[in-house]
Design a protein around this nucleic acid. Sequence first.
DNA 1: GCAAAAGTGTTGGAGATACACCCATGA
DNA 2: TCATGGGTGTATCTCCAACACTTTTGC
Lengths: 221, 221
Amino acid sequence: MIDHYKEYSLAYISVDCIVFGFDNGKLKMLLGRRQINPGRGEWALYGGFVSATENLENAAERVLTSLTGLKNIFMRQVGAYGAVNRDPESRVISVAYCALINVKDYDEELRKQYGLEWVSLEEIPPLFSDHSNMVEDALVMLRRRISNEPICFSLLPELFTLTQLQNVFEAIVGKEIDKRNFRKRAKQSNVIEETNIIDKLTSKRGAVMYRYNGNETDFRL
Amino acid sequence: MIDHYKEYSLAYISVDCIVFGFDNGKLKMLLGRRQINPGRGEWALYGGFVSATENLENAAERVLTSLTGLKNIFMRQVGAYGAVNRDPESRVISVAYCALINVKDYDEELRKQYGLEWVSLEEIPPLFSDHSNMVEDALVMLRRRISNEPICFSLLPELFTLTQLQNVFEAIVGKEIDKRNFRKRAKQSNVIEETNIIDKLTSKRGAVMYRYNGNETDFRL
DNA sequence: GCAAAAGTGTTGGAGATACACCCATGA
DNA sequence: TCATGGGTGTATCTCCAACACTTTTGC
């Protein structure tokens, strides 16, 4: 292979994953202690280097799968971060990916094995390097898209109650929503369908469960 | 400097700039013929490599300034592109930036010197590698943001008529807008202010000119 | 006087907001 | 029986879309 660019400089490429989950009425994210230098021991996103034979998305998927045991995770690129000194010792360009998972599907064994913690958004500690910026940007992206793309369902089990769905919305947009108005909107939208299954776990009366019907075109909620 | 990552692979980092301008009622972009291999002679975005001592944004600014002679160009990151074979001969990760400029400020000499052409969006030829994807993604981003961020003014001179502003909107969203409704919205919005200058160039009657008042908070148009 | 662009209001409908009480059941 | 979460309807308002004619003036 001829190297046409050899006069230019090279960099390491990494992916960093912002993994959001929804649990106990709160939006949380996975954080761990950095295992390698520089920054060993600091709170950080989980990431990995991109190998010579994989695309950026492949690398992010690989990292996410190794971390969670899950395949086909919902994932979006947040952006590229390349400040000269973002890694104090080498030139590393990092591409941040935001993933949404259902906490219940997550293998707790793996979580412990990797030393990861679910941290509420209000309690995020200072993070290694520019990881806090990545988190901030990912949140902005989520807020912008939650009403126009079917992303909220990635945070929920296949069957969910309207109250759960509303809680996800409230956690992402960060403010309370009127219950009657939300339910009206949800039912009028043609993106969820009622099932005849009643959830009796969270209430004595029981709540009707819904599922996403897969409609992506002109999604609106 | 200790290299902690030496077991991982390295890549070249480039930035590619999608430069939009508005001229003669149409949204156009700057394209050139690729000067180097691979892909020499193909239509492509203008880009450059990121040096060891500059941030991604700095590199994009440098490329844009060298290209246009302008400083402080409005610019947003579109995303990172890193398919293994996007460059057929070396591993190159490219970060795409979208820039908006006022064509009238552009130095025609520089344009010719770099062999660039203004091409209407409807007439975009096939582009080198994944550059067409970058353009597509940049357009989606523009459409999403034009109503919520003061980006349209970057495509216009400081003083502009409501008709010009409307033309910019129509070009970006790609459909016609009702004149009365648009003007009503524009005047009710608190982001533009009337001047007492009358533009007599484009109409016999003359049109009142407006300017952006700098309001960014809760921008809405 | 006519072509070309600027400028101007009203109406109806859809969707958003605000708001308070009853229901079913397990403990 | 009571505490808990599920479930419901109406009035108002705001925003958006549809729609056609008059004004000014250079030529």
